[in-house]
């Protein structure tokens, strides 16, 4: 086992632990904290099914953002879509045998071009942050850094087209991590940069605004049913104040 392989294996385990345990802990916290009052915003669904549809539309189409600002919507929707497509393409490195739909030509090609789309979306978002005075005002260094980090991930991933690594070896490495059947990671510079950046992203995820991903599902203005008049909604901590009258 080369030093690089051991180092990256260790880093990936560490990052994955932070990402999954961290996220699970956040979700646990969010779920545990009560929402003591009904605060859904209109159009507020009157059934649980309506809520599911509402959240679906927010997650898939970014509906509220669309009604707020078309440019931000366009850039961020493109970015997130591309992220999804790229993730699909990358599944081939983790599944053995590769899931049948991942191996489709379409998924692989789309995943490749997604990198360009992703860059376009991210650069648009970055431009907005830099050039729109209101957005510049609210941006802290970490807001720029996260964008730059993801731009660098997409960029380094794309670079591998020109600085290719042994794809089979990469796959063996990752499948090895998942099955504890370790195998060498090629030590090509572009690949290692790409992977290091991904590791960084995994680590900051549960400590940053990337928490907007689970956050959306726990947002009371979006996930509550509008039924306050027919159903009481008393939080545990408010029970001590309950009247007997």
């Amino acid at each position: 086992m080369s030093f690089v392989t051991i180092l990256y294996a260790a880093m990936f385990y560490f990052a994955a632990a932070i990402l999954f345990i961290g996220l699970a802990y956040r979700v646990y916290e969010y779920a545990k904290i009560p929402a003591p009052l009904k605060i859904p915003t209109p159009p507020a669904p009157m059934t649980q099914k309506g809520v599911a549809i509402r959240i679906f539309r927010e997650v898939v189409f970014f509906e509220s953002l669309f009604s707020a600002t078309k440019w931000t919507w366009l850039f961020s929707w493109i970015f997130h879509l591309a992220l999804l497509l790229a993730a699909f393409r990358h599944l081939k490195y983790f599944t053995d045998p590769v899931w049948f739909w991942v191996s489709f030509e379409l998924v692989q090609v789309a995943g490749h071009y997604a990198a360009y789309l992703m860059l376009a979306g991210l650069l648009g978002l970055l431009a907005r942050r830099v050039f729109v005075d209101r957005v510049r005002y609210i941006s802290s260094p970490s807001d720029y850094l996260i964008l730059v980090l993801i731009i660098a991930i997409a960029g380094s991933g794309l670079m591998m087209k020109w600085f290719p690594s042994d794809i089979l070896a990469i796959k063996l490495f990752f499948v090895g991590l998942l099955t504890f059947n370790f195998s060498e990671l090629p030590s090509d510079v572009v690949l290692l940069i790409h992977l290091s950046l991904v590791i960084a992203l995994m680590i900051i995820f549960p400590y940053s605004k990337l928490l907007h991903a689970p956050g959306l599902f726990f947002s009371p203005t979006r996930n509550q049913v509008d039924n306050a008049r027919s159903k009481r909604h008393v939080a545990n901590w408010a029970k001590r104040m309950e009247s007997t009258k």
Binding site: I33, P34, I39, T72, R134, K209, H212, L216
Partner: peptide, 17 residues
């Protein structure tokens, strides 16, 4: 006590919308 407060302080993307 308030899920809204916690989730909203965590989740803002500073997107500017």
């Amino acid at each position: 006590k308030y899920r809204s407060l916690r989730v909203y302080l965590d989740s803002c993307i500073q997107c500017g919308a």
